[in-house]
Amino acid sequence: MNRMIATSRVSHQFGTEHVLQDIDLTIDEGEIFGLLGPSGAGKTTLVKIIVGILRPSSGTVDVQGIRMPSLQQMHHIGFMAQSDALYNELSAKENLDFFASVYGLKKGQRKDSIRSVLDVVNLTEHMNKPVETFSGGMKRRLSLAAALLHKPALLILDEPTVGIDPVLRESIWKELRRLQKAGTTIIVTTHVMDEAEKCDRLALLRDGFVIASGSPGELKQGINAGSMEQVFLYYGGEQS
């Protein structure tokens, strides 16, 4: 399997506050990789560094062998931020059309890809409504759709299922699996333990350190734990 992401000794600080310390991760092509940790652990900072919005204070990140940040590489990355970054006064379709043209998609391509992503997140019938009339879940889905428009090879989702009901969460995960089958590499941050079980591999983050990593099965087996919760408590407890 080809390597999608390699981070090497990535550290980051805001002012004097150390947010990430010596992160070494490798993520293979086609994986669903989870970043699990409580809020404030540095998950968002790490994904922003991988996306290329932030430049790490030290260390390096390569995506498909290219050093980040790189504008060229951003063409192949889809990012769904923690907040629904949408223009509320515009309709769902207009939002998608804007993001599609930001990625340089031509008019015909835009139309096709908007139709297909709206279908994926099940918003086709609402596409002409302004986003300000959307519920929280609909906005979340639209944000996801916006990240899929340019068919990225790497999809990075920051807390994609926060504030979403179980049914919808299930349907989003189903969609992620489908994208994975199509060859997309996916990084998901979450603080929900049962969601972590759905990832192929995980890294547990706490206070800016990776305290453990591996597949959910490996992590549980290693310490004879029954659930991810126990795994986290085990490693987290050791740390403090």
Binding site: F79, A81, S83, A85
Partner: peptide, 12 residues
């Protein structure tokens, strides 16, 4: 509203 960050995650 977070759209600036979103825009900066694109090749813009």
């Amino acid at each position: 509203q977070g759209t600036l960050e979103r825009l900066l995650s694109t090749p813009l």
